[in-house]
Design a protein around this nucleic acid. Structure first.
Lengths: 212, 212
DNA sequence: TGATAATTGTGAAAAATATTTGCAAATTCT
DNA sequence: AGAATTTGCAAATATTTTTCACAATTATCA
């Protein structure tokens, strides 16, 4: 919104930087150069400087970057400074695992509500997260002002559930279904298609014998 | 190996094409044109033809593509025609879910062995998959000729486990740990960093108000 | 203090990747 | 046979990402 468009490639590296910077912070390092970072995260130092530069001048020439302020900066950029509540839609196999999955290693993302069609699951609490019936999806999302949803429902209901979630105010969806859901253009979808990932992996395996 | 390098963007679209072609097949459609496909999968028809052309001349001018042979062809390309055995390393939350996860909707991928350090888990069977102690990792991978592994271990042991798996002959790793593991260049790693995906999603959410 | 070394930030070039155009060639359809 | 389709593909274009290269700035040390 405020800042200009950051390249997708850069955005994807931000969490990687952030993670390593935190390690440095824990190790009480006060400064770090792009070259040092480069070694650790396996990204060319020029690329790192370029990436950082999209956010302005974060470093000091002849010195490098101050670890603490860099962490603080990225914490803000990556919304790690406040809790983001996330809804989990579909408590099957995968959904269940994600309930237990420790998303908030660095303490910013929390699944605060889950939904399932299964009446028996509904109104119980799993891993500290209340599970609501699917019929309450929209209402609960609205009430709890949840803007991010993880979609782990069967493919055949993916679209209708999505529509419902969007109606409930969701603006970002982490989509684990193999379906390419359709959403209004102000809603962002990030697809995580595990089957697809495996297939692509196997494809490359069979057809090339090298990394890239 | 045999075929030349296919662009990553193309490779990622293959499963999408494949999925839709199967739908056509089920609906007893015998032919399809790139234009028709285009509508369905939301990819420009020229791009589709370009994509297909990497694999040779699959269609007939003036006619289009024969659905059945196309499906057959992609089935082979995507290794859907034979079972790929996969090892699951680390039966924690996520690992457990993946054991149950129906990877082989179209019947080609099967987790045939799982591994965990937990002595109590080892030597039991979960969801029909035998769980071996981590100490047997290399041996079992070798014996069962497993070339693909799903890595769902804690980050702090990710690298050593990887080394072990690679020693056991693994050529492809679906890496769920947040660590960027180091492997020989003939081993391919596909990273699935859920925390990262969520963070990136949230980042885009906060910073742009449009899809792309 | 002044010289030397380190390091950023960034314009511009280069490289990599991906899409689109345009059309000859082949095929079908009537 | 002639019109209408539709592929396959070379080449052009567009987009995205990385890298180069160096002035500007700051730190460090003799």
């Amino acid at each position: 919104m405020t800042d200009q468009k950051i390249p997708r490639a850069t955005a994807k590296r931000l969490p990687i930087y952030y993670r390593y910077l935190n390690i440095l912070l824990d190790a009480d390092k006060t400064r770090v150069s792009s070259t040092e970072l480069s070694d650790a995260v396996k990204v060319d130092s020029a690329t790192i400087r370029r990436d950082f530069s999209y956010f302005g001048a974060l470093g000091k020439r002849g010195y490098g970057y101050d670890v603490e302020s860099l962490v603080k900066f990225f914490k803000k950029i990556l919304n790690q400074d406040r809790l983001t509540n996330v809804g989990l839609i579909g408590v099957g196999n995968l959904g269940h695992a994600l309930l237990n999955f420790n998303f908030h290693q660095d303490g910013n993302v929390r699944i605060s509500a889950a939904f399932d069609v299964n009446e028996e699951l509904a109104n119980t609490i799993h891993s500290g997260v209340p599970i609501y019936p699917m019929t309450d999806l929209r209402k609960q999302l609205e009430e709890q002002q949840i803007q991010v949803a993880i979609l782990t429902v069967p493919a055949d209901v993916a679209q209708e559930v999505t529509d419902d979630a969007v109606a409930g105010g969701v603006k970002g969806i982490l989509n684990f279904t193999p379906l390419r859901i359709t959403v209004p253009k102000d809603v962002r979808v990030q697809n995580v298609d595990l089957t697809n990932e495996l297939q692509t992996l196997i494809y490359f395996l069979e057809h090339y014998n090298h990394k890239d």
